[in-house]
Design a protein around this nucleic acid. Structure first.
Lengths: 195, 195
DNA sequence: GTCTATAAAATGATAGAC
DNA sequence: GTCTATCATTTTATAGAC
């Protein structure tokens, strides 16, 4: 299929997103210029506006894409089993998912304040619904006498903070595999909420 | 003591730091302009350069001040007692200290990548020495058979991530006092590392 | 779809008057 | 110590040629 010279819409769009994600993660949204993103992609700055109406939308689309992927993967998993096994599955999933996309995690946690108020509300809602799943597991476990936590909401946030923290130190070239890291954190989570 | 009209060096300096801290915490270092800081203080932009050689130094001084205060408070406390009581004291201290200065915590954790390489190395060193105290407590507890963790370094980072996460949700007007929050988190930390 | 060129505004930092 | 004025860049975003 012949194509007009200089036309690369099928590849440039994703490349803009990838370049923006990588640069936002390393330098922060506000510190990255559209020219810098364009240079990374290999086009001129003006060409970026074929793929995003503005810089804010670029950030929002990255964050929404990340949250959508997170929730889609959760929805694809059965919620069967007792609270303990569901908590283990959630813990291992959270670590595996987050370690697989460190740039998206970094941007999603650090750039919330650079979202417009409307965009912030959307991302905040998605984040909340992810937390709600974990809180549901903890609540069920407390009701079943398997867990003992003073406050399920605080325990939810404490567990997520602990698990997400893994992204600040884990390196692929390090001494531990992802599965080993999952096991170490699951051991701490299990004990922290145990009855 | 008479003073030249327009001279306020005794009050302006601290006010520049306070304004910069507040604005950096809310909008991020890169998104805040020197003019914005000046407006918050009530002076013109040029006057800021009587108090800082440049914007980078303003950020570094805020972060170093925060880390120095953190380490100074730790040094002022005795390290006596067994590992369990030392861990409880560390946990309660960490929460209390961090909840008392949310802006400085936010800036210190979010703006590391906006530090020059030399400045980053300094802050990183200070942060490391804070973590080392916690790791020492965990190691002592493991040696005494009071704690059981698979990896003291990972447990250190996991505990700190969990505790620091409190700053993302705690509000002074909320239903829990700082002491109640300390107790809830101490309960989770204690169990997470228990033998 | 990409380019060049440019508009319009904002930025960090400095000079010199007071 | 603060002001006004300004420099030299850089910024986001758009217009129009190809």
């Amino acid at each position: 299929m012949a194509r007009t010279a200089g036309s690369h819409s099928e590849t440039t769009g994703p490349r803009v997103q990838e370049a923006a994600l990588r640069l936002f993660a390393r330098q922060g949204f506000a510190a990255v210029s559209m020219r810098q993103i364009a240079a990374e992609v290999g086009v001129q700055a003006g060409a970026l506006y074929n793929y995003t109406p503005d810089k804010q939308s670029l950030l929002f689309d990255l964050m929404r894409g990340h949250m959508d992927a997170l929730l889609a993967e959760r929805a694809a998993r059965g919620a069967g089993g007792d609270a303990v096994s569901r908590l283990e599955e959630f813990t291992r999933f959270h670590i595996r998912f987050h370690l697989a996309r460190p740039d998206a995690v970094f941007v999603s946690y650090m750039e919330l304040r650079n979202l417009s108020p409307e965009n912030f509300a959307v991302i905040e809602g998605l984040r909340r619904s992810y937390e709600d799943e974990l809180e549901g597991i903890l609540r069920d476990g407390v009701a079943a006498g398997q867990f003992d936590v003073a406050d399920t909401k605080i325990a939810t946030l404490a567990v997520i903070a602990m698990l997400t923290g893994v992204t600040t130190w884990y390196r692929e070239a390090g001494r531990l595999s992802v599965t080993e890291v999952e096991t170490i954190y699951w051991d701490m989570v299990r004990k922290a909420v145990a009855a």
